[in-house]
Amino acid sequence: MADISALGQTVTYREAVAEGIARELRRDPAVVCLGEDIGKAGGVFKTTQGLFEEFGPGRIWDTPISEQAILGLAMGAAMTGMRPIAEIMFSDFFAVCWDYLANEMPKIRYMTGGQITVPVVVRTANGGGLGFGAQHSQAVENWTLAIPGLKIVAPSNPADVVGLMASAVRSEDPVVFFEHKGLFASKGPAAPADHVVPLGQAAIARAGTDLTIVALAVTVPMALAAADRLAADGVSAEVIDLRCLVPLDMATVLESVGRTSRLLIVEENPYQGGWGGTVASIVADEGFELLDAPVRRIAADCVPLPFADALEQQVIPTVEKVAAAIRRLMAY
């Protein structure tokens, strides 16, 4: 992470996940967790470490390998007075319980004319860069963006994990909460007490004047590193951490582009159908006169993710690719 505070406590992103969940479990007895290996095992990524010990089997429920049951039970419980936090171990597994994310959770309120409320959080480990291969490495935030009725959160640092978890659990709407596998070991300042980050508010992770880089989750530290590298060449890049895809804070993006006149979008999901296409189309539609250069996107290439590092690095965003894109955009 680019800006680790020398003062105060520093924690990992992984620890922040457990801390964010624990704060909500302490605050509200209606909050309950379910998922595979989240109890005594503490989660395969150790993101629920300590929860079973503090809250016990009545609040932390280990499930069978039944993703449809996990999301279906979470939704049924959310419809009837509970506030479940469900874990789907890898976001790739959304494909086996997609009905609940695509047809059930986001539609039941609308198709019943507002009769039913679904305050559920679906947590999942998202993204690549760790050599897990094509079925455990995908960045699938764009899958969820294709579905009206879901709120989508993807924090980039430990404090945001805690603050956005608070908002997600307190949301009356279904929230998909993407935790990035490549960030679990990263460190940052711990969240202060009662930290709440509202959904739909982007953060300016780095102020700049020459171009705007819009990023999300793992691409935020990537963009910050590239911006730092280009600063030596006299380029002042602004980095916006979207933090959420829905609600999407386009006001912050458009305001920034109004100052910089150049836009680079860095996303980990595939270029084809990626969320950057939505951001770019809104800027093209509503901010065309603000631009002095084409909108550029760095995204994953449209191939299944390969296993070997030498291959995977070819097709996912990297600091080098972002830095090269900045140079090209500044030379335009």
Binding site: V32, G72, L73, M75, G76, M79, M82, Y100, N103, I116
Partner: peptide, 24 residues
């Protein structure tokens, strides 16, 4: 609590409502 048009989708939902009743 609803009529569902994806075959079988509501069986886990009913189990979830039952889980909720048990928790409460």
């Amino acid at each position: 609590l609803g009529s569902y048009a994806i075959v079988g989708a509501h069986l886990p939902l009913a189990a979830g409502a039952a889980w909720s009743a048990k928790l409460r």
